[in-house]
């Protein structure tokens, strides 16, 4: 896999960059020793690996802002990373860049049942959102198969789906707002607890932008009451064609189908 050629000057200057980053995120928030960096050398697309210059684990939006401004000024590349479950290599590191990890920003900030939403930090797991709201019979609809591990920040970056997406859509259809840090370090809010924010729908393009437009530091998602009855039908077919015809006819009939799958 051919990646952009790293800038040797940035790599040569590693010590200086690490010191500058440590001034922003003190203590264990900056990882630079080679052995520890190995844990970040790939995501779930394990066929490709690359150790980053350093890993930075911020705890606040202010730190993220300062890190981005520093990188933008010096040319250090930034590879954001949630839980590292991307199957497409979205968080494969670069030799002349940092991995910006969100493991420390993993709090559920607010659950608001009156407005049917939850405000969480990007490192909260997908299932963590449902777990925070299920005591009142609510859940968060997008359910990628990695939902135990994958993070909401990563879901926003990849616009993750899941088996319920036929009825409830992908992440983008369940996303109400984000706090977004731009590369110059400025912070903007897109959307919020109200729907249809003014102006261009920038929230809509940030979802699924694969970490290329900005860094999300807070996420507001829509939560749904669980329906009263959910049944699963397991239907066996002798041929794939017959199964396919059944799927098409069932959906056309408008049944409240949430998902249809074919294990092997």
């Amino acid at each position: 896999m051919l990646m952009p050629p790293p800038d040797p000057a940035l790599i040569a200057d590693k010590a200086r960059h690490v010191a500058a980053l440590r001034a922003i995120v003190p203590g264990e928030g900056v990882i630079d020793d080679d052995a520890a960096l190995g844990a970040y050398e790939c995501d779930a697309l394990t066929a490709h690996t690359q150790r980053p210059l350093a890993v930075v684990l911020p705890s606040t939006t202010a730190q993220v802002s300062a890190i981005l401004a520093y990188c933008n000024r010096t040319g250090l590349k930034i590879v954001p990373r949630g839980a590292g479950t991307s199957l497409s290599g979205g968080s494969l590191p670069l030799a002349d860049g940092i991995v910006l990890g969100f493991g420390k920003m993993n709090r559920v900030l607010e659950v608001d049942f009156d407005n049917r939403c939850a405000v969480v930090q990007p490192g909260v797991t997908n299932l963590g959102v449902t777990n925070a709201v299920k005591y009142r019979g609510f859940y968060y609809a997008p359910d990628p198969s990695s939902q135990i591990a994958c993070s909401i920040g990563g879901n926003v970056a990849e616009n993750s789906g899941g088996v319920h997406c036929l009825k409830y859509g992908l992440t983008t259809n369940n996303l109400l707002g984000v706090e977004l840090v731009l590369t110059d370090g400025s912070v903007v809010r897109l959307g919020g607890k109200g729907m249809d924010g003014p102006g261009l729908d920038l929230l809509g393009v940030v979802a699924g932008s694969e970490g290329m437009l900005g860094v999300v530091t807070e996420v507001t998602v829509r939560i749904l009451p669980a329906p009263e009855s959910r049944r699963a039908l397991l239907i066996g077919f002798a041929s794939v064609e017959a199964a396919g015809a059944c799927v098409a006819e069932t959906i056309a009939a408008g049944s409240a189908i949430r998902s249809m799958s074919r294990p092997c």
């Binding site: 616009n159 789906g161 983008t172 809509g204 393009v205 979802a207 699924g208 932008s209």
Partner: peptide, 12 residues
């Protein structure tokens, strides 16, 4: 989810 979701941007 292939590429940036420009239809979202065009809507509105």
């Amino acid at each position: 989810v292939t590429g940036f979701d420009l239809p979202k941007l065009m809507a509105g």
